[in-house]
Amino acid sequence: MSTGRVGSIAFNTFREAVRDRVLYNLIAFALLLSGAAILVGEISIDIERLVVINLGLTAISIFGVLIAIFIGIGLVSKEIDKRTLYTVLSRPVQRWEFVVGKFFGLTGTLVVNTFFMAIGVFLALLYTAHRFDKMDGWVLVALYFIVLQFFIVCALSLFFSSFSTPLMSAVFSFALFIIGNLADDLRGFARMSHGLGGWLATGVAYLVPNFASMNVVSQVAHGDPVGGRLILYNTVYALLYSAMAIAGAVLIFQRRNLK
């Protein structure tokens, strides 16, 4: 029964996002990509593929992260503010089901969004090269990693919004996204420091989300392969990290008095 309720909440979240014209960002994306592909083709030699992949995947990532954060922070707080949550939680719906349902609704929205954008990237690749290359397959891996990042960002923005104001949640989530992209450097810093500070730095460095190893955009743009073990570990990491953030959100939300 509970999967049914989680599913209903997820679907409703998805529907709400779609009707809120979230997917309109696809138009901006399409314009950006096709404009760039055509323009670069005219002013530069031999780097169309590079530009299409770099620009396309970077835009997918940025658009997606912005959507994840700005919808994610409102998922819970908006329902509390507008008191829609009252009519949901007065039914046989447990609070964890609500949080988990919201998470899947948002990630679902992002997966659909990314899917359409990915089609755009591949069309642009086809337009510039007139055929698909074997190494284009690695672009799919880069896209997959980007989706994994969305999972973590969604979970984090849900986590922050379970106890903080929307504005602060957005700031926290965005800061963690930036820090997470530098996470390997941070762990490097931590390795070099000693004593209590070193312990503290290590703790922080390993607790912030690690996006650095999920960013293989330039690598695949150059046609370099991505190791199978990295795919496996990144998957495990992203799923567990999201689970951790969601569990934290549930723990806080379960205790919360809805004003």
Partner: peptide, 19 residues
């Protein structure tokens, strides 16, 4: 929920070390 949190945190850290 607390168990899920701790287990997933442990697992995430382990996979991070592997990465």
């Amino acid at each position: 929920t607390a168990a899920v949190l701790l287990i997933s945190m442990g697992g995430a850290l382990r996979s991070l070390v592997a990465i």
